[in-house]
Design a protein around this nucleic acid. Structure first.
Lengths: 74, 74
DNA sequence: ACAATATGTACAATATACTTGACATTTTGT
DNA sequence: ACAAAATGTCAAGTATATTGTACATATTGT
């Protein structure tokens, strides 16, 4: 049984730091749909590694500055 | 059109650094199937962010030490 | 040479991410 | 109060990751 993992993100904070970037703008920069940004930002599901890199690139930061994870010990 | 991204990894190198860890062992530590490890290590597809974190954890390193990416400019 | 272990391939089935489109709610500015 | 922009939700469809099974090839040790 894989120990479940909880992935968190600070997309919201990063958007505000980045001159109040809107979800729409982020979506365009990251090459994703707005729905995808909403869902990931809200933590509804975790992105693919590719999408994670794209989002980090959109902000010009490392992927580790956008996403963090905790291991839920069994 | 989202600019395509190429994701590379050094799972193979990390396995050998990590006391010759086998794909099977890595799969168990990361909570994945052996198929998944083979496919990701061979670059057949890029993993989910969750799986990427699990693999990094299995080696005890940061996700950025396992995966890198290049942006294929259009 | 043989057995055991490790790695690789192929395929179908399932789970999850991502998309599009349409509509509801909230926030912001005038 | 009103309009516009931003955020959020729902659902159906497509794309991609992950799994299990089974078999093939390579590597290692005796």
């Amino acid at each position: 049984m894989p120990s479940p993992i909880v992935i968190t993100n600070n997309i919201r904070k990063l958007r505000f730091f980045a001159n109040e970037m809107t979800q729409q703008e982020l979506a365009e920069k990251a090459g994703a749909s707005r729905q995808t940004i909403i869902a990931i930002e809200a933590g509804k599901y975790s992105p693919s590694l590719e999408m994670a890199f794209r989002i980090a690139d959109a902000f010009g930061v490392s992927i580790t500055e956008v996403f963090a994870h905790e291991v839920k010990e069994k």
